[in-house]
Amino acid sequence: MSASANAEEDGARAFTPCRACHSLDPAERNLPGPNLSGVIGRDVGGAAEFDYSPALRKARDEGLRWDAKRLETFLADPAAMFPGLWMSMRGIEDAAERQALVRFLSDPASR
């Protein structure tokens, strides 16, 4: 198996717990969390059909956008980045796992 295939598998595996609340299928809606299809480059709190916590609405109003660095920082400790966040995820301690997840979310071709 190639290194890129391993990286894709690592990212897909890292996304597994996220699937309880989020989808990468652009057509899938009505989940507990916002759809994450195309999250990189999107405004923080920017999925129009989702009711975000005030912390994420404030970030959107301030013009923050998701990029790989911001997403990795968020995944390390979401509540520290956005106090008052409604999402109950603790964070991903392992840096390699966070990086694999960010790559997976950044590259639709890897799914």
Rank of each mutant, 00 (worst) to 15 (best):
A95F: 04
S2E: 12
E8N: 13
A80V: 13
D51N: 07
E49A: 14
M89S: 12
G84C: 08
K69F: 11
P34K: 05
L64H: 08
R103L: 00
F50V: 05
S23G: 10
A59P: 10
C21I: 02
A14S: 03
R19G: 14
R13V: 15
H22W: 14
N6S: 13
A14M: 09
A68K: 13
D61T: 10
Y52V: 06
K69R: 12
A95I: 06
L75C: 03
G45W: 00
T16S: 08
G46S: 06
L64T: 12
A48P: 06
R98K: 07
D94W: 07
S4N: 12
A80K: 15
Y52G: 00
R60H: 14
F50L: 01
Q99Y: 14
P78T: 08
A109M: 09
L75S: 01
V102Q: 02
A7W: 13
A79K: 11
R103F: 13
M81W: 09
P54S: 04
E72Y: 03
P83W: 07
A100T: 08
D107Q: 15
S110E: 02
M1I: 12
R65H: 11
Q99E: 09
A14Y: 02
R19V: 15
T73V: 12
A47L: 11
E62D: 09
L71P: 15
W66R: 06
A59C: 01
